[in-house]
């Protein structure tokens, strides 16, 4: 090894540090640009009417995103209903059977599930739900696609949290003669609530912005719809359709919807980190 002078080594060190800081700062710039741009474009279109009125045909003034907001809420609720119970069960299974062979494979499958591209989820839900119903797009099909995406996040959050629960707690409950299922439901899960809830909220914030799985499942709808077996509109779908339309009015509405969607997602993330910080169970 060549011997370098101490000054040269110090200089290299400083140059490297400078480069790292510079490049990291450059990474933040797109974020600021995106937030600033969306806020600037979106804020001018948003008023109270924007949230409470339906989209209008091209050429008419105004029009809002009420049906997309309702649609997104329906999709989120259905997705939670489908993915949370199974996800929590599976997470408890993985945490309670850490070394069994089945759990090794399940962990692997969960990784695989997490890596599946979102557009493929759309195809799956189309073949499973939409095609048997003779091509009827529906909120239900959309939330099947979304819930397969959310499942790995719920499973992982549950597994990680339940793993942290001390064995002593479980043993104390078992030694009092409490059956295993009651120990899990009344002791282990209640102490893990905050961790699981954080995972669920982060999962919701991820799927709330997904467009690709909804293209051939929820499909979109110009009208208000509360029926889960009919096509619904969703915020990301609406943003995609309106953003790629040639009409200035529609693009402006898409900016407003983008701003609302970003704020909604950031809000959920904010609540999630608040829960994680405040109600963190420490042993």
């Amino acid at each position: 090894m060549k011997v370098k002078s101490i000054n040269r080594r110090k200089a290299e060190n400083i140059i490297f540090k400078g480069t790292v800081i510079f490049l990291s700062l450059l990474t933040v710039i797109p974020l600021i640009l995106i937030l600033f741009f969306v806020a600037k474009k979106g804020i001018s279109i948003i008023d109270l009417n924007f949230f409470f009125s339906l989209p209008k045909p091209v050429g008419q003034e105004g029009g809002g995103i009420s049906n997309a907001i309702v649609g997104t809420m329906i999709l989120i609720a259905l997705t939670c209903l489908l993915s949370i119970p199974l996800g929590i069960l599976c997470g408890v299974f993985l945490a309670e059977n850490r070394k069994s062979r089945l759990s090794f494979w399940v962990r692997l499958w969960v990784e695989v599930l997490q890596g599946v591209p979102s557009i493929v989820m759309g195809i799956i839900a189309y073949v499973w739900i939409v095609r048997p119903l003779k091509g009827l797009f529906s909120a239900f099909a959309g939330s099947v696609a979304l819930s397969i995406m959310m499942l790995p996040m719920v499973i992982k959050a549950t597994e990680e949290t339940v793993k942290l629960v001390p064995v002593a707690l479980k043993e104390a409950s078992m030694s009092l003669g409490v059956p295993y299922y009651k120990t899990v439901l009344r002791v282990i899960l209640p102490v893990s609530t905050s961790g699981i809830l954080t995972g669920i909220l982060i999962g919701v914030s991820r799927i709330a912005g997904e467009t690709a799985p909804l293209l051939f499942t929820a499909f979109g709808n110009q009208f208000m719809n509360y029926n889960i077996f009919k096509p619904v509109n969703a915020l990301p779908l609406m943003i995609y359709r309106y953003a790629t339309s040639p009409y200035k009015d529609w693009q402006n509405i898409a900016w407003g919807a983008s701003l609302f969607l970003i704020l909604f997602i950031l809000g959920i993330n904010f609540i999630a980190s608040g829960i994680a910080k405040k109600w963190k169970v420490q042993f």
Binding site: T27, V28, P30, L31, L33, I34, L35, F37, V38, S205, R206, A208, G209, E210, T211, A212, P236, I239, Y240, A243, A254, W255, S258, L261, I262, I265, L266, N269
Partner: peptide, 15 residues
């Protein structure tokens, strides 16, 4: 960086 990963794909596309 966390915020950056939370922004939906469709908004990246629009931007």
């Amino acid at each position: 960086v966390e915020l950056l990963s939370g922004i939906p794909s469709v908004i990246y596309g629009f931007w």
